[in-house]
Amino acid sequence: MGYDRGKQLFSSPHRLALLRELRSQPADTQSLTDALSISRVTVQRHLNRCSKLGWIRKVDGRYELTPVGKHACEAATAFLDRLSVLGEYEDIVHTLAAVDDSFDPLLLADATISVAEPSNPHEPIIHYRNTVTEAATDSIRGILPVFSELLTEVHRDLLKSEVETELVVTQSVLEAAPPDATDIPSDSFGLYVIDEPLEFGLTLFDETAVVGTYDEGTFVSCIESTDPAFREWVVAVYEGYRERASRVPLEVTADPDCVVQSGSDSAE
C-alpha cells in the first residue's frame, strides 16, 4: 500500500509541488496554475487524482489538504530531503552513522558544512577556528581525537578567560600534548581519556554544536549548527563517551610552567 501511494505521488514532479502549494494555504485552480507554471488542464488532472486518493478536498471553490494529505506531503518532503543530504554528504553520514546508528541525515539539513577539497584542504579547520574565535559561551565540552597545535591555539584565549572547559581525548592525544598549566586554569578544566579510536571530534558551546570528521587523522569536514535537535544529538554522543572515559587528575606543580598528570610519569 505504501509503495503504491508513493508511485502515485512521485509519478509526476508536479503532484508533490501541488501538495506543497496547498500546504501553505488553500487555493483555486487558477492560483495553482499560476504558481506551478503548468497548464490548467494538467493542474486539474492532478487535482482530480489527489482528490481520489483522499489527499485534498474542495471547500468553497478552493482546494485544501486533508489531514492525510498533510502527512503524505510531509513524509514525501522528508524522504526527498534525506535523499538529497545522502547524495551531497554521503561520507559525512557514513562517519556519523558509525558513531551512532540512529543518526538522522536530516539533522544536517540546516547545518553549515565545510568539506576539505583539493583546491582548499584547510577549509574545515578555518571554519572551526572562526567558530571558536567568535563563540560567546560560558562553557565548552569537547571530544578531541587527534593532537593539533592549531586546535590547541584556537582554544587558548577561551581557557585564559576561564571558560569552563571539559575535554575527552584519546590516549595518544594525552601522551602527545600534556596540558600546560600556564594556559589552562586547573579549577576550570576537566580532562578525560578514552581508550577508543575516534574518527570524529565535537565541540559543544552554550547554543552551538560543532562536529568534525577525520580521515586517518586528517580533519576533512566541519559541521556547525544551532538546531536544537542537532545539538541534542551531539550532547547525547558526548555524554556517552565521557561516561566511558576516565578522569585525569591534574596537579599544578611549584613550577608555573608545568602540570603533572596524577598517576603518570610524564610532566612538561
Score class of each variant (00 low, 15 high):
138 D>E: 06
248 V>Q: 07
13 P>I: 00
153 E>A: 14
34 D>A: 13
140 I>R: 07
113 I>A: 01
48 N>H: 13
101 D>L: 09
265 D>Q: 13
255 D>Q: 01
128 Y>F: 15
118 P>V: 14
147 F>K: 12
65 L>G: 02
31 S>T: 11
56 I>K: 05
109 A>N: 12
103 F>Y: 07
47 L>W: 02
71 H>V: 07
150 L>I: 13
17 A>C: 08
221 S>C: 00
119 S>N: 12
245 A>G: 11
182 T>W: 02
235 V>L: 09
235 V>F: 03
47 L>M: 11
154 V>W: 08
50 C>W: 03
136 A>K: 12
144 L>E: 05
12 S>H: 02
211 V>H: 00
46 H>N: 00
113 I>S: 05
157 D>M: 14
226 T>Q: 15
23 R>P: 10
245 A>R: 04
125 I>M: 12
154 V>K: 02
146 V>H: 02
258 C>Q: 13
165 T>M: 02
5 R>A: 15
153 E>R: 15
189 F>K: 04
241 Y>P: 03
24 S>L: 14
261 Q>H: 10
129 R>H: 11
190 G>Y: 09
254 A>C: 11
16 L>E: 07
229 A>R: 09
144 L>Q: 00
205 F>N: 02
228 P>K: 08
246 S>D: 05
14 H>E: 09
72 A>L: 12
78 A>V: 01
260 V>H: 11
76 A>C: 01
161 S>Y: 10
134 E>C: 09
137 T>Y: 06
11 S>A: 02
44 Q>T: 11
258 C>S: 15
54 G>Q: 00
152 T>G: 15
214 Y>R: 10
42 T>N: 15
27 A>H: 00
251 E>D: 13
232 E>T: 13
17 A>G: 00
143 I>D: 08
187 D>E: 14
46 H>R: 03
21 E>Y: 00
5 R>N: 14
168 V>K: 01
47 L>P: 03
182 T>M: 07
136 A>Q: 12
39 S>Q: 09
25 Q>K: 09
124 P>F: 08
148 S>F: 08
69 G>C: 04
44 Q>A: 13
266 S>H: 12
9 L>G: 08
91 D>E: 15
40 R>L: 14
99 V>L: 07
217 G>L: 05
202 L>P: 04
150 L>C: 10
187 D>V: 04
162 E>R: 09
133 T>Q: 14
113 I>W: 06
256 P>G: 07
252 V>M: 05
30 Q>P: 02
136 A>F: 06
32 L>I: 01
246 S>N: 08
6 G>F: 04
170 T>M: 00
40 R>S: 15
42 T>V: 08
194 I>A: 06
83 L>E: 10
32 L>S: 02
72 A>V: 06
77 T>S: 04
146 V>W: 03
225 S>W: 01
262 S>I: 06
182 T>L: 02
203 T>Q: 07
258 C>N: 10
209 A>T: 00
164 E>V: 12
176 A>V: 01
37 S>H: 13
65 L>Q: 02
164 E>S: 13
38 I>E: 03
263 G>D: 11
148 S>P: 06
18 L>G: 07
164 E>A: 15
82 R>L: 09
37 S>P: 05
10 F>D: 01
43 V>R: 06
84 S>Y: 00
137 T>G: 09
18 L>H: 02
231 R>M: 04
95 T>Q: 09
129 R>V: 11
48 N>F: 03
127 H>K: 07
194 I>S: 03
40 R>I: 05
76 A>S: 09
